[in-house]
């Protein structure tokens, strides 16, 4: 290895040990969030959208930035409010669900099968005496609609969850979609 690569490798070894150590000491919490995120995914699979909304805090912010082919693209995703597929508070997300419930959401109605997969759950940070948790996950949403149209939406999420009165609610979700070009997004992540 050349010198610069060796230095970086040594630094990475330290970082890897820290990361894995943190994961080890928060294993129980990670398991708890695997359950929560699986539950959330199940609600979407089963079209239990009102119950999905109930898991969101009143002040939730749900962002799905548009991905760009530019230098250092990942650096500022969370700040990119002005370049999003979705940038919703609870009222906006409620309207999205409301559209489906009217019975006239033709893009969605009667056609789509969805299956949400959640993986790679990892605890990133714990604050406020354990009442505020930042957790990341990867996901795939498979959607089958008209006849042979099948789409897989893939990406990652960085969430902030807050526990109030024993109940975990989603406060912030930043979705990193793994697509530059997207079909119409009729699903939630």
């Amino acid at each position: 290895m050349i010198k610069a690569q060796k230095r970086t490798a040594e630094k990475d070894e330290g970082a890897a040990a820290d990361w894995l150590g943190f994961a080890s000491s928060h294993r129980q919490l990670r398991l708890e969030f695997e359950d929560i995120l699986s539950y959330q995914a199940m609600l979407l699979d089963q079209d239990r959208l009102e119950e999905w909304l109930d898991l969101l805090a009143e002040d939730v912010r749900y962002m799905v930035p548009v991905r760009q082919k530019i230098k250092d693209e990942r650096a500022n995703l969370a700040n990119r409010r002005a370049l999003c597929h979705f940038n919703d508070g609870k009222p906006g997300l409620s309207l999205r669900v409301g559209r489906i419930r009217t019975g006239f959401a033709h893009y969605n109605n009667l056609h789509a099968l969805v299956r949400n997969l959640v993986t790679n759950v990892r605890i990133l940070d714990v604050q406020n005496g354990g009442e505020l948790v930042q957790v990341a996950s990867n996901f795939a949403v498979f959607r089958a609609r008209e006849e042979k149209e099948e789409t897989a939406f893939v990406g990652g999420r960085t969430d902030t969850w807050r526990r109030t009165d024993g109940k975990w609610l989603l406060v912030h979700r930043l979705v990193e979609l793994n697509h530059h070009f997207v079909p119409p997004i009729s699903v939630l992540f």
């Binding site: 999003c84 979705f86 940038n87 906006g92 559209r99 969605n108 079909p183 119409p184 997004i185």
Partner: peptide, 20 residues
């Protein structure tokens, strides 16, 4: 920005129907 994303983006509640 919020209104557009909700209503008139490719995934907007207004627009999805045109796509189908």
């Amino acid at each position: 920005v919020e209104t557009l994303g909700l209503l008139f983006s490719g995934s907007g509640i207004f627009e999805l129907e045109d796509g189908t």
